[in-house]
Amino acid sequence: MFELKDVALLYETRKQALAALKSTTLKIDRGEEIGIYGPSGSGKSSLLFIMSTLKDPSRGEVKYDGKEITALTPSAKAELRRKEFGFVFQEHFLVNHLTVRENVLLPASDKKDARKRLEEILGFLGLGELQKRFPFELSLGQSQRVAIARALINNPRVIFADEPTASLDRDNGQKVVKLLRSYCKKNNAILIMVSHSPEMIEGFGRRFKVENGQVSEVTANV
């Protein structure tokens, strides 16, 4: 479903070009759970941004469903993100003046259908009672669950999770990972999760280590 061929991200400085991501080639199939780990600044988030069309690579090809996606127009990329992808980040990135319900429905492409799914998702995430609350009236854990609900509202085929547990305590962090994994399993969706801690991606089908921009698949237990 995802195919990366010789993808690299270079930052030009005055003196030299720095590689945030060195030549990377990989293939991900439907329903796979991908765990990416590595120290801060290693390039793992860059890999996630490139795959999710938030950033263009300096070179290489990124194919989704057999189609090259780096050359799409900004509008087509937005459409792809909205319909196919779901995002969860370390910070919840909720819109402060919108209620929980409105935040979750924000990316909904089919509002009527989304409204039907809303109750189910909020119930699944234990947010049923909080629909009319504003983000600043929620705890961190609750906010992160709202962000997950928003990521799931369009029934995405890929979920990108960038350090989704970093600002949570261990228990809440594990709950979040469990929720994401159970959704992907149930819907045969891809989960691509970035974490600085290998612990959080334990049990994932495939794991990649990123160090100094070099991506390598880890086959043994970490």
């Binding site: 938030l54 509008s75 937005a78 459409e79 993100r81 909205r82 319909k83 819109v95 924000l106 928003r150």
Partner: peptide
């Protein structure tokens, strides 16, 4: 700006 970024990430078009 944060809201605009969020909207862009989750796939809402600039328009």
């Amino acid at each position: 700006r944060s809201e605009i970024s969020i909207r862009s990430i989750i796939g809402l078009k600039e328009k």
